[in-house]
Amino acid sequence: MKMILIGENIVKSYGLGVEKRKILDGVSIEIEEGDFVSVMGPSGSGKSTLMYALSGMEAIDEGRVVFDEGDLSELGEDQLADLRSIKMGFVFQQPTLMKNLNILDNIILPSMRHNRKNTSNITEKARELMKKVGIEDLENRDITQVSGGQLQRAGICRALMSNPKMIFGDEPTGALNSKSAQEIMNILSDINKEGTTLMLVTHDAKVAAQSERILFMKDGKILSEMRLGKFIEEDMEDRFKKVTEKIQEIGI
């Protein structure tokens, strides 16, 4: 299987002088096309920073990141922005949606940057995605008129507008109740089954248990990795148990 993302000996620090602190300490990672990876660890372990480094949102101090066979260090800021908007998708704990736009317009807004002449095609694509995730009746609603789970579905639609090769999620279920969280995980799992690579940062063992691989981080390093294989709902209890036991074993 082709590697979609490779990180080699990544080092990232914040602060200056005596305040300087190493957040990523020589992290290496490989992710294959179609993989579903979760990253777990305590607050301050470096898991979100790793995601930002691998997606080019954060410059690294040392090491190398290769995405889709291209070295991110060779790209300028505009090129990195284009890469993220075309080949990557992002889902955050709190969707960053515009308060003055309705749900549909929020979904299509980023796509208009690259394709202003095809508004009708972009709108049609957005409506297809909204139907796919079950919010087709909400296109004219303001973002204050829908639930957190519905906002997250809109965020997923926006992330999928460019048919990205990979989606990065930073605690995508963290602000949701258990029912809404599982609905979002079902959508993300379906996206992965269709071939899109996923990398999720999460503190939730139930979320991580639904991925194929889990990376456990602490103090800026990957301590351990667990491979669970493709998710089968009937195996959830056993997978969850394995994850929680691993968390206790390595003390994160």
Rank of each mutant, 00 (worst) to 15 (best):
D219R: 05
F216R: 02
D190C: 01
P164Q: 11
N163R: 12
A154N: 13
T202E: 05
F168K: 00
I214L: 09
S211K: 08
M199Q: 08
G195Y: 04
S178P: 01
E194Q: 12
F216I: 07
A208T: 09
S162W: 03
Q182D: 14
E212G: 14
C157F: 11
S162F: 00
S162D: 07
S211A: 15
A208E: 06
I184T: 05
L215N: 14
A154F: 11
C157L: 08
G169T: 07
N163G: 04
T173G: 09
G195I: 03
K193E: 08
D190K: 06
D204P: 10
S162I: 05
I187C: 05
M185F: 04
K206I: 13
A181Q: 06
I187K: 07
D204W: 07
A154T: 13
M199E: 09
G155T: 02
G195E: 07
T173R: 02
S178L: 02
A154V: 14
T173A: 04
A181F: 05
I214T: 06
M217P: 12
P172W: 02
L223N: 12
T197C: 03
A154C: 11
S178W: 02
N186D: 15
S224L: 11
M166D: 03
E171D: 10
I156V: 15
R213F: 01
H203E: 12
G174W: 05
I156Y: 09
D219A: 13
S178T: 15
N163Y: 09
Q182K: 14
G155Y: 01
D170V: 04
Q182M: 11
T197R: 00
R158V: 10
T197S: 08
M199C: 14
I167A: 12
T202Y: 08
E183G: 07
L188S: 02
D219Y: 08
D204G: 09
V201Y: 09
A159G: 13
T197F: 00
I167P: 09
F168C: 04
T197I: 01
E171Q: 10
I184L: 01
F216L: 05
M185A: 07
H203F: 13
S162A: 15
K179D: 13
